[in-house]
Computed example of a mutant assay.
Amino acid sequence: MRYSWNELHRFASQCFQVAGVPPADAEWTAEVLVRADFTGVHTHGLSRLSAYIQGIRRGVIKAAPDTALEKRALSVATLDGDSGLGPVVAKLAMEAAVDLAKETGIGIVTVKRGNHAGPLSAYIDLATQAEMIGWAFSNAQPAIPPWGGRKAFFGTNPIAFGAPTHCHSPVVLDMATSKVARGNIILAAKTGQSIPEDWAIDETGCPTTDAQAALRGAVLPMAGPKGYALALMVEILSGVLSGAEMAPHVGSMYDKEQREPGTGLCCIAINPRSFFDGDEFYRRMDVLVDEIHQVPPADGFSSVRIPGERRVRLEHQGRQEGIALEQSTLDELKKLAEELHIAWRDDLFV
C-alpha cells in the first residue's frame, strides 16, 4: 500500500492536537515527520510519532511550552525551549536567526531545554526559502564513544547546512556525525533486522550485528577520529554554548525516567546580500551547480548530483504516488489511533 501525504499529515496532526498541542504547532510537527518519510528518511518520520506522543504523556515534552527568546547581542539570541516539541522549538530558533540575519548579515540562535527535532534539514529549508545560507547543529542522548573509547558519550550530533540557488534546488546536506543515524539502528531493532558489523559496538566494546545490543552499546563515529572531532564541535556549539545539557547528560524522549531531555541546538543564518550586491551570490551558486552537473559520471553512476536533489525528487514523486511505510510503523500508528480514539482509515492509501 502507498499512503497519501494529505491523509498521513492529517492523521499525525490530529494525534498531536488530541495530545494537547496547539493546532499550528501540531500542523508543523506533522509536516516535519511526514516530509521525512516522503524524502526517504524513515528513521525520522512517522516511526517517531508514537514516541513524541508518549513523551508528551509522560511530561518530558510539553505540548504547549512557554518559550522565551532573548536577544543577547546585535546578531545573537538565546531561546529557552521549555522542553517543547523539538520541531516547534527548532523552527522558532531558525526563524529568529533569519530575522537577525536580515538586519545584520548574520544571526546565531542557541537553544537550551529543547527536544529531539527530527531531521535538521527541515530548518535548513526555512533558511534557504528566505534566501539565506543556513547551519543547524544539535546534540542528543549518548550514542557514540569518543575516539579510543568504548562507552557512548556524545550523541549522534547531526550537522545540517544549506545554500540557496535561483535556478536549481538548494544545496542541502544533513548528516549525523556517527557512522549512521541512531534511528537506523532503532528501526532495525523494531523490525528484528541485523545491522552491518561496522556500525556499532556492544556494551563490551566489541563489534555487533545485533541492533538491540548496539542500542545498549554505542554507534561508531563516522570516519573514525574525524567523526569524533565533528561530534565534539557540535557539542560545543549546541551544548556548551547554549547552556543546555551536555554529552552524557542529555536525555531522550525514549528514556523511561521522568526527566526532560535538555537537548541543545544552534541555528545560524547568513545573508548573502551582505557580501554581494543584488543577486550575485545566487548567480555564482547556479554556476557552481551547473559545473558540478557537468562532471562526467563514474562507472555505475548516471549523473553527478548535489546534496539535496534526491530529497526533492523523492518528495515530488511521493506526493504524486504516495509512499509505503514499514509494517512496524503501521502497527504503531494503528495502536496509537486506538489509544487516542482516532479513527484509523484503511483507505489512506492512494
Rank of each mutant, 00 (worst) to 15 (best):
residue 329 T to N: 03
residue 139 N to C: 09
residue 194 S to V: 06
residue 90 A to F: 13
residue 249 H to W: 11
residue 120 L to M: 08
residue 311 R to S: 15
residue 256 K to F: 14
residue 251 G to D: 03
residue 93 A to P: 02
residue 149 G to A: 15
residue 147 W to M: 00
residue 170 P to R: 11
residue 180 V to Y: 03
residue 241 L to K: 02
residue 291 E to Q: 07
residue 43 T to N: 09
residue 45 G to W: 15
residue 315 E to K: 08
residue 268 I to Q: 11
residue 224 G to L: 07
residue 225 P to I: 05
residue 196 P to M: 04
residue 14 Q to P: 01
residue 345 R to A: 13
residue 108 I to N: 11
residue 228 Y to I: 04
residue 10 R to L: 08
residue 296 P to Y: 13
residue 7 E to S: 07
residue 291 E to I: 01
residue 153 F to L: 03
residue 14 Q to L: 11
residue 160 A to I: 09
residue 17 Q to I: 10
residue 47 S to M: 13
residue 304 V to L: 15
residue 31 E to R: 13
residue 261 P to W: 09
residue 208 T to M: 03
residue 204 T to W: 15
residue 253 M to A: 03
residue 52 Y to P: 01
residue 52 Y to I: 03
residue 8 L to I: 12
residue 315 E to H: 13
residue 255 D to I: 01
residue 166 H to L: 06
residue 74 L to W: 07
residue 135 W to Q: 01
residue 326 E to M: 09
residue 129 Q to P: 02
residue 327 Q to G: 10
residue 241 L to N: 06
residue 239 G to D: 04
residue 315 E to R: 07
residue 98 V to T: 11
residue 75 S to F: 12
residue 142 P to G: 03
residue 268 I to A: 07
residue 142 P to C: 05
residue 88 V to D: 05
residue 22 P to G: 05
residue 1 M to Q: 05
residue 63 A to T: 10
residue 1 M to G: 10
residue 55 G to R: 05
residue 321 E to T: 15
residue 245 E to P: 05
residue 8 L to N: 06
residue 7 E to P: 00
residue 99 D to A: 13
residue 39 T to M: 05
residue 227 G to K: 10
residue 247 A to D: 05
residue 308 G to C: 10
